[in-house]
Nucleic acid binder design. Structure first.
Length: 280
DNA sequence: GCGTCCAGGTCTACC
DNA sequence: GGTAGACCTGGACGC
């Protein structure tokens, strides 16, 4: 429930059954993607595949790696929890074990999806992402669900595909250009995961991608595990106004002051605060 | 039915 | 470096 990614293909969230279904790519061009069902029956994660074929050790290792990455199982949260534990309005985060923001197996997917969230309704975001996945993602042999498309698959499509089929509007050439740069190897967005650049320098790098501005870069940084940015968008501003400013619009500087005490964790403290209704 | 507004913003030209 | 205006789409809203 950490954020809206759960509702974007190839994630499928079943709130009643408290499970996530996800199509994952496997290593090698010849390996078809696989659907996995992820549940939490007893506090631990249980991962089952829908694959009727036999999966090899490499496949299992890839699935395990992706699930750990998506659910942030290796994130060290103790410093964050120590920072919020003494704050009455934030201590619930520790009790709920919140703060592990769901992310995609690749930075590329998170980047494309983030661009799909900009300057539009959430309904249009889900439509654009579904258009990308269902038209360009490789299907699984088992259930016909689709994986998220690769940069190469997206680069092969003309700009008109993104405009006319995906209904991405002015974002069409952003997707085309990004996919081409990543597919050609000119731009290594996966390298951002382990970049040693400062957050400010990495953010500057991100903003060189067409369609990535202040909010989109901040959002991506959070998904990389860097929380010293706030990622203020219209939804966050409206939610802050409702929760902390008697329904009136608050200046961005006021929002920043509200979370400043959490220092390098302020972006995560803000996001948990904004979404506490979803989780508590 | 039609026009306007705006939503999980960004880009470009111009100052 | 700061800012005005343009930009796709589609649902909500007022008339």
């Amino acid at each position: 429930m950490s954020h809206g990614w759960r509702a974007l293909l190839p994630f499928e969230f079943d709130e009643a059954g408290w499970s996530i279904t996800r199509v994952l790519a496997l290593d090698g061009d010849s390996s078809a993607p696989v659907t996995v069902h992820i549940t939490s029956p007893d506090g631990a994660l249980a991962v089952n595949t829908a694959a009727r074929r036999k999966l090899g050790k490499r496949d299992v290792a890839r699935i395990t790696r992706d699930v750990r990455h998506m659910f942030r199982l290796d994130d060290e949260m103790s410093i964050f929890y120590a920072a919020v534990a003494g704050e009455p309005e934030f201590s619930w985060i520790v009790g709920e074990g919140a703060g592990r923001l769901l992310r995609s197996p690749t930075v590329y997917e998170d980047l494309v999806k983030t661009i799909c969230t900009t300057n539009c309704s959430w309904a249009l975001t889900t439509k654009m992402v579904a258009g990308l996945v269902n038209n360009l993602g490789r299907p699984t042999p088992e259930d016909g669900r689709h994986a998220f498309p690769t940069p190469a698959a997206m680069a092969a499509e003309p700009e008109s595909f993104y405009r006319d089929i995906v209904r991405a509007g002015y974002r069409a050439n952003y997707f085309k250009e990004l996919a081409e740069r990543v597919a050609s190897g000119e731009l290594d967005v996966e390298g951002w995961m382990t970049s040693e650049l400062s957050t400010a320098d990495l953010k500057r790098e991100m903003k060189r991608v067409k369609g990535v501005g202040e909010y989109a870069a901040d959002n991506l940084l959070k998904l990389l595990g860097r929380y010293d940015c706030l990622a203020l968008d219209s939804w966050v501003r409206a939610t802050f106004a409702r929760l902390h400013n008697k329904g009136r619009a608050a200046d961005d500087r006021k929002i920043a002051r509200h979370y400043a005490r959490f220092q390098e964790w302020r972006g995560l403290a803000l996001w948990c605060d904004m979404t506490r209704d979803w989780i508590k």
